[in-house]
């Protein structure tokens, strides 16, 4: 694994400078659901350019470039409030507030489309394939918690 000497953002793309050359990369979390810390840089053919276990140790300008790229790539939606869960013909229609604004989605087969990552941490996948995270059910208001308990 080549050492990365620098990272720059140019024309909307991230480039890694290594061994005198420059390669366009995309940045990914290694554990996007359970721990958004460690990252990997992949080139356009999906080959590893670098794996960074402690991105916070990188120089500030590189970290800024990586953070910007991560923000662009990861469209994580966290549910902040459950307004209503309506069941109709076996499909649950969720009406929620998220950190990215209000949203409605349909959930089917909770056994398959609800992933519990911890006691109070879960991810829902709607019928279109979008995912919604609830990082900590205890941090939601009572009504939201009741909707979740009643329908999951």
């Amino acid at each position: 694994m080549a050492r990365v000497d620098g990272l720059i953002s140019r024309n909307g793309r991230l480039f890694a400078q290594a061994e005198g050359g420059e390669v366009a990369v995309t940045v990914r979390y290694l554990r996007p659901l359970t721990s958004r810390t460690e990252i990997v840089l992949l080139d356009d053919k999906g080959r590893e350019v670098a794996t960074v276990m402690e991105p916070e140790a990188l120089p500030p300008e590189q970290r800024a470039a990586i953070d910007a790229a991560l923000k662009e790539r990861y469209h994580l939606v966290a549910i902040t409030k459950v307004r209503e869960v309506d069941v109709l013909f076996g499909t649950r229609y969720w009406s929620v507030e998220t950190d990215r604004g209000p949203r409605q989605f349909a959930l089917r087969e909770p056994g398959k489309n609800v992933t519990w990552l911890g006691e109070r941490h879960l991810v829902l996948r709607d019928t279109a394939g979008n995912r919604y995270e609830i990082p900590d059910t205890d941090k939601l208001d009572v009504r939201s918690r009741r909707w979740i308990a009643g329908s999951l």
Partner: peptide
Amino acid sequence: LFGASRLVAVGNGSEHVLATYS
């Protein structure tokens, strides 16, 4: 992307994101 996709117009040496969508 993770949780979304985007449509990009590729020009000569530059890229422009036209829209991101779920």
